[in-house]
Amino acid sequence: MVYYISFILIGIGIYGILTQKNLFKFLVSLTIIDTAINIFIISLGYIEGKDVPIYSKYTPVANFVDPLPQALVLTAIVIGVGTLALGASLLVRVYEKYETLEVEEIAVKEARK
């Protein structure tokens, strides 16, 4: 079930990249795809009826879901916000140069030069 949710979210993100004309919407679509892929990777490690991969008072012996995908996604989320900030700062520079964020207006201004 979670597989289908993440697939549909990836499809929505690609639809957004293809149709939208504002550069901020591109960033939003990329973030949606990022979240969807994180959900997909985590769902590959889920095992029905098993517990959180932490040794504790309540789970003293190992009966865990797969911890490897979680370890990969944990760092990927923080990297995601770093690259998002880099993209946002690039957009600020683009706006300072062209005074718009619409793709077609930028193309017109570029052609006029």
Partner: peptide
């Protein structure tokens, strides 16, 4: 066109589910 492309991608992913383990039985 964008809708068709994204629907095709979703169908491709759903088709590739057969090589993946079933959800919850990894």
């Amino acid at each position: 066109f964008a809708l068709l492309i994204s629907l095709g991608l979703i169908l491709f992913f759903v088709n590739s589910l057969s090589i993946l383990p079933e959800y919850g039985n990894v």
